[in-house]
């Protein structure tokens, strides 16, 4: 049986769908989380994974009923304004220090949920020390780590997670590992630490991956509820603007180049602990 094309579908529904009818509850196929995500245009570039990551995480927060129980920490980088979109109490940390800020919030309010939302420059370069020590202390927080292998906000410089050979504005001839080091697999690095409960690597470049990433975020907050320890959900993502690609091309890059080096799936679960 051949799948229906968009043209088939269009002719099939023509006349039956109106501007009003598509907004009916039973016809909705996409909905923004109503209260946890603020209804405002985001500053992210078209096709960027941040907006998807924000959305699914705020869905999780809404579904688990945690809006009043959670405090977030925004990083420095493209997602510096996360607090303009996520409708929960938040703090904006200095570059790299989100895990230190998150540690303190959790320590003074252990009954609350705490998350940080950080990019690869923030978490894996300038904030490596804070990240490793928060993980090693088993801080009962969730770290959402968006890894797109490039500095977005400062416009395309080499990140610690840039792939070998990857062209960036500060590695214009491609990342030369003999001079610029190797891409850092933070998740694999943290997983062996006894304080770490859950580390998983996900992506948001395809619908199925989005679903899996959402499930991982759900699990991580459940583990936080159970006081299992440090949880990190790495999301391998794109950066169409700085990769000088269309959104589709950048998602293909994620699929073909990023994921082979940063394989998806659970790296550590509380059962492995």
């Amino acid at each position: 049986m051949s799948e229906k094309t968009f043209v088939d579908l269009e002719s099939e529904i023509e006349g039956t769908v109106t501007r009003e009818s598509i907004c009916l509850e039973e016809n909705l196929i996409y909905q923004k989380p109503i209260d946890t995500l603020i209804d405002t245009p985001m500053h992210y570039c078209p096709g960027c994974g941040h907006s998807t990551a924000h959305k699914i995480f705020m869905e999780v927060v809404a579904e688990m009923g945690l809006q009043e129980e959670i405090i977030g920490v925004a990083p420095v980088g493209c997602s510096v304004f996360a607090y303009h979109y996520m409708n929960v109490d938040m703090q904006e940390a200095a570059h790299g220090r989100a895990c230190a800020v998150g540690t303190a919030i959790k320590r003074v309010m252990p009954e609350k949920y705490v998350f940080t939302y950080q990019g690869d420059g923030d978490l894996a370069a300038i904030g490596t020390a804070e990240t490793v020590h928060a993980a090693n202390r088993g801080e009962n927080i969730l770290v959402i780590f968006i890894n797109n292998g490039i500095y977005g906000m400062t416009s395309g410089q080499m990140a610690p997670t840039s792939l070998a050979g990857m062209v960036t504005t500060t590695s214009p001839y491609g990342r030369d590992t003999s001079r610029q080091g190797y891409p850092l697999k933070i998740s694999e690095m943290l997983a062996p630490l006894p304080g770490v409960a859950y580390v998983t690597r996900q992506s948001v470049h395809k619908p199925n991956n989005v679903k899996r990433a959402k499930k991982a975020l759900q699990k991580a907050l459940q583990y936080q509820k159970e006081k299992r320890g440090f949880c990190m959900v790495e999301i391998v993502s794109n950066c169409p603007s700085n990769m000088k690609m269309t959104p589709l091309q950048s998602n293909q890059f994620v699929e073909e180049k990023m994921i082979p080096f940063y394989p998806l799936g659970d790296i550590k679960t509380p059962e492995d602990k």
Partner: peptide, 24 residues
């Protein structure tokens, strides 16, 4: 009262930021 040994002074001052931000 929490007495916390941070991994560095850099972390310590940012922990102060976090906890002070919670009104502590």
């Amino acid at each position: 009262m929490l007495a916390f040994q941070a991994e560095s002074e850099v972390a310590a001052i940012n922990m102060i930021y976090g906890a002070a931000g919670c009104g502590r």
